[in-house]
Design a protein around this nucleic acid. Structure first.
Lengths: 131, 131
DNA sequence: AAAGGGTGGTATATTTTTGATACCGACGAT
DNA sequence: ATCGTCGGTATCAAAAATATACCACCCTTT
């Protein structure tokens, strides 16, 4: 049943745009990788892996996406232990600002959020639907 | 084999913190809901649903999380068609800024990203691993 | 009065995403 | 000669997102 009264999704263009943006670079690993490269400048595959605690698969996938989207550059050195270096492109550098804004907000408000959670959970404790 | 040289995850405290932040409010729907409430002020459940094109389940879940984290307030009006209104709390309001920064960056760079993608994909076309 | 619609959800099933694991070739160290 | 490192890929299981159906409630329409 697709023909219901449902509106044609995303009335506000801004939401639609934002949705697109977030679909591209809005996942945790992308942001984390950019933040990491932002801090250390140039990192190799396994350095990122160790630094972030990400699985090889997700790192590989996410790096390729970031490279595809032009935020990260990949430099392959055909030395004998092969060496691949990742760094931010200018576009990636420009992404540092919003990420920083997000991080700042988070750092400032993590405790507030934790407190709100505790309050909410405590209140929920008193209303068990059963038992 | 856990005892390898693997570092104990998240060497840089900033990444760890950022990770926490993103675990809380870093998913697409949370950001989108905040953005939507930010634009319209107060919205009801089904208004949000229609506006965002989100499934009921995800909307319900995400709203509850946002409420739990203190970013969104939920007001239940026991009228006869039950009416539930959602709005941003002061904390939620403060989250508008980083979201706005993100949205701005996205709007400014979506085309650049698309172009980078096109270039990348075109280059990849020429190196088919098989066939 | 019976049928259908809108309200804010929940329960269940299906699909998509993520993550863990094993493996690869090439080489250096033990 | 076996092990480990490098940067991945292939495979499979677990988790999350989504779609769908359904609920009680009442109102409107027929």
């Amino acid at each position: 049943m697709e023909g219901t009264t449902l509106a044609p999704i995303a009335q506000c263009p801004d939401c639609k745009r934002l949705n697109e943006v977030l679909s591209r670079v809005g996942d945790r690993w992308s942001v984390l990788i950019v933040a990491s490269l932002s801090q250390y400048g140039v990192l190799r595959f396994n350095e990122l892996k160790r630094n972030l605690g990400i699985s090889q698969r997700m790192l590989s996938l996410t790096l390729r996406e970031l490279e595809r989207d032009g935020l990260v550059s990949r430099t392959y050195h055909p030395t004998i232990p092969p060496k691949v270096e990742y760094a931010l492109t200018p576009l990636g550098e420009s992404f540092r600002e919003p990420v920083k804004a997000l991080a700042m907000w988070g750092l400032e408000n993590l405790e507030t959020i934790d407190a709100a959670r505790a309050t909410y959970d405590a209140a929920a404790e008193k209303l068990p639907k059963s038992a």
